[in-house]
């Protein structure tokens, strides 16, 4: 995997895929997509980057340990469920607010937070699997 073409394309491809994955996550509520798919796309991006430049580079690039990302995701998803306590409704009840940001009405919800949690867990856990296997592949 050390071909010049691959190494030239990889950074572009990775950043495009990472962006696309977030786009898929955000539009998931109304169009095909969501946390699971978005997360898997992001993992593929990381895997491609790892193949081109080595796992160490990827680990540096994402800064956090993948399992820490997964843990943060699980925490976010749980908190998304717990917020409903303050509204005195059952666990995991979806809550929505529509703040106007820069004159644009943006729908924010615990559901979105939950989906982002799913995304992070998938990125972290599956990314960790892929990276640690790739790392061993070079032995």
């Amino acid at each position: 995997m050390k071909s010049v073409i691959f190494r030239t394309v990889a950074p572009v491809l990775t950043s495009l895929m990472a962006l696309f994955s977030i786009f898929v996550l955000l539009r998931g509520h109304n169009e095909p997509g969501g946390g699971f798919i978005g997360g898997l796309i992001a993992v593929s991006a990381l895997a491609i980057y790892g193949m081109a430049y080595g796992v160490e580079t990827v680990r540096r690039a994402i800064f956090f340990h993948p399992m820490a990302i997964a843990g943060a995701g699980l925490l976010a998803a749980t908190l998304a469920g717990l917020i409903s306590i303050f509204a005195r409704v059952p666990f995991m009840t979806g809550l929505w607010i529509y703040p106007a940001i820069l004159g644009l009405e943006v729908p924010l919800s615990t559901v979105l937070l939950f989906d982002a949690g799913v995304y992070l867990v998938v990125v972290g856990a599956i990314g960790s699997i892929a990276l640690s296997l790739e790392e061993r592949g070079g032995e």
């Binding site: 969501g34 699971f36 898997l40 998938v122 856990a125 599956i126 699997i129 296997l133």
Partner: peptide, 13 residues
């Protein structure tokens, strides 16, 4: 099935 796919992949790995 959507969640099943992801979980079966983790178990496969």
């Amino acid at each position: 099935i959507l969640t099943a796919i992801v979980i079966s992949f983790s178990f496969f790995a």
